[in-house]
Design a protein around this nucleic acid. Sequence first.
DNA 1: AATGAATGAGGGTTCATTCAT
DNA 2: CATGAATGAACCCTCATTCAT
Lengths: 204, 204, 204, 204
Amino acid sequence: MPKQARRQQLIKATMQSIGRNGLSATTMADITRAAGLSTGIVNLHFESKEKLLVETLRSVANEYKDGLDEIFNDESISSAEKLLAHVNYDFSKKIVNRNKLSVWFAFWGEARSRPVYSRICAKHDKDMASSLTRLFTELIKEGAYHHVSPRNIATAYTALADGLWLDLLITPRETSPEQARNIAMDFLSALFSKHFPGNNGNSI
Amino acid sequence: MPKQARRQQLIKATMQSIGRNGLSATTMADITRAAGLSTGIVNLHFESKEKLLVETLRSVANEYKDGLDEIFNDESISSAEKLLAHVNYDFSKKIVNRNKLSVWFAFWGEARSRPVYSRICAKHDKDMASSLTRLFTELIKEGAYHHVSPRNIATAYTALADGLWLDLLITPRETSPEQARNIAMDFLSALFSKHFPGNNGNSI
Amino acid sequence: MPKQARRQQLIKATMQSIGRNGLSATTMADITRAAGLSTGIVNLHFESKEKLLVETLRSVANEYKDGLDEIFNDESISSAEKLLAHVNYDFSKKIVNRNKLSVWFAFWGEARSRPVYSRICAKHDKDMASSLTRLFTELIKEGAYHHVSPRNIATAYTALADGLWLDLLITPRETSPEQARNIAMDFLSALFSKHFPGNNGNSI
Amino acid sequence: MPKQARRQQLIKATMQSIGRNGLSATTMADITRAAGLSTGIVNLHFESKEKLLVETLRSVANEYKDGLDEIFNDESISSAEKLLAHVNYDFSKKIVNRNKLSVWFAFWGEARSRPVYSRICAKHDKDMASSLTRLFTELIKEGAYHHVSPRNIATAYTALADGLWLDLLITPRETSPEQARNIAMDFLSALFSKHFPGNNGNSI
DNA sequence: AATGAATGAGGGTTCATTCAT
DNA sequence: CATGAATGAACCCTCATTCAT
């Protein structure tokens, strides 16, 4: 089995275990069992548990970013359409699932005391913010006058999405991805009513 | 020393350790050292580490709720003023500090796989949501016509605040509590321009 | 149980295990089992296995040195008598036994690649050499003319004793402590026939 | 590559690793890396690590013995000259070097608890002792009257040489092979002044 | 013959918990 | 009540060995 595939297999098993047991209760034995492999395999491919965890975080972050980049780089659609695609993406099955959300919150919980996690999360946030800011800047150029800076709108949208993810993670019975998506769209409608007029009321 | 005081002392030490070391690296020894007490003291007063952790989460949640209740129950101020006070409270020194934010995110990260944490967080969210919903309902009654349901506005605001807390936790150098507060106010201004006209642009 | 006594107990158990199993096959489990204590006890009292091993080496070295110091400091006997006592000591039951000899050779075998061991052994050798040199110097002063320097005689005696210990360790059936002692005495007789005339032939 | 050459290559790599890292820290990976070969190679040629180690000890012992046999079997020189050659050999570059001394002491340290090592060392000692005894017997026959038995002189010389090797291994900065050789010669001079008159004082 | 990815028993260490003082 | 020495299960990691290639 190719080296990269093995690493990916182990990262996937790690995400499963974090999803099922939480980060603090995730043991090497859990991970290797989930992968159907032997005890020593992680140290063979990642040197240590810690490095596997870091790669797992990086993997989730990169996967998220890659999906967004596809949207951002699509030159056939307008900025508003990109934003719409962004929201749909943020609350799609690919992103909103127990394992991946668990990974995000697990590492956010530890980030403050682990510089490595912190750096990865911070860089990710920065990347996301600058892409979104560009988008909002263009929307405003297109005539959507607004007194709030594009940068702050970007921060607000990201915060809103993260907060909605929390609801989806903790109270999945009371919040559906669909509802969360509509709430996010209502936020955009409130700010850019010309670009997103149609969603009004959907989130109810 | 009175029993309750000792328990409070240990809960405080736990918060400090979670703030400094993260939940997964917080040991009983860390906690008792931070409290200046001996090894066995936690098991004496809380039976187990797990129960101390649960009480710590409960303590942070209750403290937050108590502060809000004071605002909600203040009959001398209007709904709009209550909302303003709420926002100010959410980003005040009392709430936004390393230790307490660390506790929130630490337990959110583990909540999915620990029913006890999940239940506490879910109940807390529900309480907050219903108070906020009532507030937004009244604002709308007061003439702020809006097509989004009060319930969803409450969810959105809470999500926004949680997401901003994440920024304050992970990138404290790039986000100040003041900025976060202003972003939250901009959100309310966008929805309730009549009640909150003044903040426009402050968040820039 | 007093802290020092516990440490001594563990050092003794370590010596036993090194004597029985060799250094490389000595596990923490062996040591704690030999001491009749639990798994974690070594890390509680010595922090790590490595530190326990170092303390074990130091203990054997110090015990040897203490015994010799008693002889060296005894002002009621002559230099020649001290030397005689030294030889008797070197091949006495207190020094020549499986456990202690095993410790010496185990650490000598690892010394070259472990600076900590090396330093301890080197310091010990230096101390022994200077004491012995003083003794030989006095013997020569007392009229035992000799063309070999006292320092070199000391080195030679120490080397001879160490080498005889090796025989006692590896071929205990073919070499008795008594024989080894006599061979060492023959060596001294050859160099200081006036002081040690009587042993001639005993070693046969 | 011929089978014997490969085995020799691995034995050499083992000696290097024992010299550099010590026996207890010598892993199969160290050995195969030092040999520039792959992981499984040792088990292919030696079945197990243990057997490779035994062969390494045997190799060092045999090499030492072969060199001595050349001296013993040289019929063109006298017994005294053989003894002189023996001493020179014992402290020559071929014998006194980090790797080989490390091997000797490493296995001596483990010999007591490993019958295989013990047997090899004991046999080696016995062989050496009998050759040396023969030599000393002849020297005594040649008129060097001595009251100590040839056997014991042999034992003493061997012990002295081993002990000097220890100095060379542990405190190489304070003892040179040259000095050690001279000390050994002084020992022989003291016993056989007629045969070895010249070294007097060299060791100073 | 040689490789090196994979295995898994066994190692040292940590740490929540206990209990005699 | 409070202490802290002692316990031992469970953790992560190492490394000799195997075997498909």
